[in-house]
Structures are given as structure tokens and as C-alpha cells.
């Protein structure tokens, strides 16, 4: 095996890696693992989730009292209910037709990736 041939996979990997980085930077909602820290950022940012406007969760100053305490809400969800938790954020009208909660996913207030991140943060509250 020549030196040239041995190097080929490495080159390919580099090219592939660059492509992956590029595609990640252009389309952030594709192929990223959900991340609780990012989710929290979404929840406390006014122009994104702004969850603290209505909900109480740890380490936020003067949260609103329209919605329930998120730690208490998460008590009723087990690890198998991830889809339900996601649906609450995506479009809560499915569970409560007259809710005040904005349909974050259905009305494209958040990206699917951001919704996943928020779900991840909510599950981190259970530990």
C-alpha cells in the first residue's frame, strides 16, 4: 500500500468533516443532540420561549403565575412521556383547546431543535 493510498481515508474524513460542520452551521436544526443548557437559554430569552413570563422554574427572577410550576408539572410525566411533553410545547391546544399557551412549534415560534432542547431541559428538572 502506497503512502498516497493510506492517506485517502484521512482526506475523505477531513472533507466529510468540513461538510458536516458547514451543514451544521447552515441548518442548525438538523442532526444535533438535544441539549438542556441550550433549552434553558431558549426558555429564558424573551424573543424565543420566554417561558418565565408564565411559568416558575428554578433560578429565574420574578416569574409569572399564569401557568403551573414546571417542576410540579414534570412530576406527572415519566421517561416514556417525552412525546407528550414535546406536544405540550409544540401545540398545547391538543390537550387544552382554550389554553393561553402559544403553540410554539405549530406557529413556528421555535424551531424543532429548540423545542427538543426545551424538552431536554424540562427532563433535567426531574433529577
Amino acid at each position: 500500500m502506497s503512502v498516497k493510498e493510506r492517506n485517502r481515508p484521512a482526506v475523505a474524513a477531513t472533507v466529510f468533516g468540513t461538510l458536516a460542520v458547514l451543514s451544521m452551521s447552515l441548518v442548525p436544526q438538523v442532526a444535533q443532540a438535544a441539549d438542556a443548557a441550550r433549552g434553558r437559554k431558549v426558555m429564558t430569552t424573551k424573543s424565543l420561549g420566554n417561558c418565565a413570563a408564565c411559568h416558575k422554574f428554578p433560578n429565574v427572577e420574578s416569574p409569572g403565575d399564569i401557568g403551573p410550576d414546571l417542576i410540579e408539572s414534570m412530576e406527572s410525566f415519566g421517561p416514556e412521556d417525552r412525546a407528550a411533553v414535546r406536544q405540550w410545547i409544540w401545540d398545547a391546544r391538543e390537550f387544552m383547546p382554550h389554553t393561553i399557551m402559544p403553540p410554539f412549534g405549530a406557529n413556528k415560534i421555535l424551531t424543532p431543535q429548540q423545542v427538543d432542547d426545551v424538552v431536554e431541559y424540562l427532563y433535567s428538572l426531574k433529577r
Partner: peptide
């Protein structure tokens, strides 16, 4: 870039809705 793209996505999303 990720952040900017995310912002862009949100803006586009809000326009669509």
C-alpha cells in the same frame, strides 16, 4: 454562524406564520 442561522430561521418562521 449557528446563532445567526437560528435567528434567521426564527425570522423566516415568523414570516411564514
Amino acid at each position: 454562524t449557528v446563532a445567526m442561522a437560528a435567528v434567521l430561521a426564527v425570522v423566516v418562521g415568523s414570516l411564514i406564520s
